[in-house]
Design a binder for these strands. Structure first.
Length: 111
DNA sequence: AAGGTGACCGGCC
DNA sequence: TGGCCGGCCACCT
């Protein structure tokens, strides 16, 4: 076991909980982890999550609903394609009805 | 061990 | 949400 994955595992756990057709923000995950200030770190964890096929990182975006991290995906618009595939409309790297598709992680029950 | 960095967020104009 | 600045936290070299 690796303690250094402690934080990452947290993010992965939440990311894996994201239901189909739903999206969340880094801050939401960070807050769920109790480290709202480390929202940036969440993004970093997602970066490593790119190595994990089980992590739907395409469902994780910033609070503006912008596909900020699509640049880190394989294709140029892979992330956008995936979201649209789940019924989420995306235009110019921006999610339509972001709030409507917004999903907040289960904060309760973590401790 | 220290410094730099980043898929962010919140506040202000 | 449009743009800029500062803060904050963990990872990487």
């Amino acid at each position: 076991m690796k303690e250094n994955e402690n934080f990452f595992e947290r993010v992965y756990a939440i990311a894996r909980l994201i239901p189909y057709g739903k999206v969340t923000s880094y801050g939401a995950i960070a807050k769920a982890l109790g480290t709202a200030r480390s929202a940036r770190m969440v993004g970093w964890a997602m970066n490593a999550s790119g190595l994990k096929e089980d992590i739907p990182a395409h469902r994780v975006i910033n609070r503006k609903g912008l596909l900020t991290g699509k640049h880190h995906f394989q294709g140029t618009n892979l992330m956008q394609q995936l979201l649209e595939n789940e019924g989420i409309k995306v235009v110019d790297n921006q999610i339509i009805d972001f709030e409507k598709h917004f999903w907040q992680p289960e904060i309760t029950g973590f401790d």
